Each structure stands twice: as C-alpha cells, then as structure tokens.
Simulated assay, not measured.
Amino acid sequence: MPPAPYLLHVNSRPTLVSAPTWKKFYLEEHLPELINTGTSKTAALYEEIDLPGDRDTGSQRRWLAIYQTDFAEPLKSENAKNLTWTSEILSEGGKHTDVSIEHFDVDTRNYELIQTYNPKGVGEAPAPEILTAEMHPNDAVDFDNWYREEHLQKLSKLPGYRRTLRYKLGPKTHLTKGDVVPAFLAMHEIDDVVKALEGKELEETNGTEWTKKVLADCNIFFARGWKLVGTAGY
C-alpha cells in the first residue's frame, strides 16, 4: 500500500506537564483519537536525537508527531470535528481537562507528498529513526531535479537507509509558526541516523558540485534526527 497523499506534521514541546506525561498523552490518547475519528490513517510519535556536528535548528520542540492522511487540511476535515480535545492524562490528577495551547508550544504544518523513493521496496511499517531535511531553495526546479537525478541515489548508499518521502508545504494552519516556512520537507527513513551520518558514504553524498550548489542556494536548511517512540493505526 502506498503512503497517504498528505502529511500532518506536528512539532511540539510540553509547557505545563512533564515530558513523560506528554509522551503518555500522545500514545494513549491523542494518536489513537486521530486514527479512530478517521482524521489520520496512521500516526507515529518521534523524539529528537542529537546529531553529530553543529546542527542547531533553534527549536526546543523535541517531539514530532506525523500523521499520514487523505486530507490536505486534516484538522479542517469533517472527521476532525469528532476530536474531543480533552484529556485525563494532561490533568495529572485523573480528571478530564481541555487540551489548550497553554499545555504546549507547537508548530503544526500540512504537507503534500511529491515523491516516494523506495529502492529497497520496504513496506509502510514506521522507521525506527528518521532524518528530516527542511529546505527552502530559490530555484525549486533545480532543487527537485537534484533530488530525483542525484541526491536520493547517493543517500540510498548510507548504512541502514530504507526510503525517502518528499513533501511540499500545504495550506498553513492556525498553529503554523514563522513568517517564512521551509517549502520542502524530506523524511529519510534510516535504521540508525547517527551511524549513517558518521559513515564515509556521507562525504561522497555531500561532496558533489550539484549538492554544493543546491545548499548554497537554500535560504533555509534544517536537518534533524528522530527516534520512534510509538505508533497508532499500523
């Protein structure tokens, strides 16, 4: 089964509750509710891992929830109207409480799938780790050609590489942060991100003239690593 045509990407950090409580809320309440209402087909929660070298994104949001969905704007879909937006877990006292913006700092984005690169024919099981690349090129055509004609083939040589899903930014949500949001997102599924980035294969991948040209052309480039915490809908 191919991946869904759209992605809801939610990068967050808790502000009123502890990290363990935030994780419990996602895994036991929030992810299952988006699946049960049909807002999302599958969902996965990842926690950020530190990458080698200086890769500061300026973000303290170290949790990433990704929802495969059939809707370009899933939170505006009819299905989403059935979301309760209440939680027993976030109250940390066993009573229902409304899930409000006070509980978290969040950046929520809609994306549309533009390419699936799957040379090994892996299935839809969630990857144990992912490397995300957010990029905002000046020359979108050259950027796309670089990915399709060179970059993905070289990335596939990294140890533990599985596949890549590439997306373009969709309609903004009321929780999308920033005046300029990177137009493109790539999710590289890898068994062990740090091991892959420390291998000699990365030098060859990033050392081509085309790669240097594309990176120099990008106004924004954030690379972040994530480790799987839990899923729903798989």
Rank of each mutant, 00 (worst) to 15 (best):
P52L: 00
H30P: 06
L113P: 08
L197Q: 01
D54W: 04
W226M: 04
M135S: 15
F221N: 14
T205N: 08
T205H: 04
L113M: 08
L152T: 08
D105V: 05
W146D: 15
V180G: 06
R61Y: 01
V180H: 08
E73V: 08
L75W: 02
D191F: 00
L75Q: 12
A186Y: 00
K213A: 15
G123V: 00
D142R: 09
D139Q: 06
D217N: 07
W226L: 03
T116N: 13
K227S: 15
I35W: 03
I35S: 10
K24Q: 09
D98W: 04
H136E: 04
L175K: 10
T211R: 05
G233E: 09
L185I: 12
K23I: 10
Q153M: 13
P171R: 07
G94H: 06
F25E: 11
G121H: 05
I101F: 01
H9D: 13
L158R: 14
L152V: 08
H96W: 14
N110L: 05
Q153Y: 07
A19E: 13
L131N: 07
A80Q: 11
D142T: 15
P74S: 15
D144A: 13
D56G: 10
A80P: 09
T42I: 06
P171Y: 06
A183E: 08
S77V: 00
E203R: 13
P20V: 09
D217W: 08
Q115F: 06
N110M: 05
Y46R: 04
I190Q: 01
T108A: 14
A140G: 01
P159Q: 10
V193W: 00
L34F: 10
I114K: 03
I220G: 10
V99R: 06
E134T: 11
A72V: 04
F71Y: 14
F184Q: 12
E78H: 12
T173D: 07
N145E: 07
P137Q: 02
K227F: 01
P20N: 10
K200A: 12
P119E: 14
E149N: 13
K24W: 00
S100R: 13
A223Y: 07
I35D: 05
F71K: 08
N145F: 02
T164I: 11
E201C: 03
K95G: 09
R148Q: 12
G207L: 01
D217M: 03
P2K: 03
E73T: 14
L27V: 03
S77G: 07
T97R: 13
K200L: 11
L215T: 13
S91R: 04
Y117I: 06
E88P: 00
I66F: 03
S87Q: 10
G233P: 10
H136V: 01
V122Y: 15
E150S: 05
L83S: 05
R13N: 10
R55K: 12
T208K: 12
L215G: 03
P126T: 00
D50N: 06
L90K: 09
F104E: 07
G207Y: 03
E124C: 04
N118E: 07
Q68W: 15
D98Y: 06
G53R: 00
S59Q: 08
A43R: 05
A44V: 09
F143G: 09
W226E: 01
P3L: 01
N206A: 07
D50L: 02
P182G: 15
A4Y: 05
E201M: 07
S156R: 01
H174A: 12
R162K: 15
L215W: 14
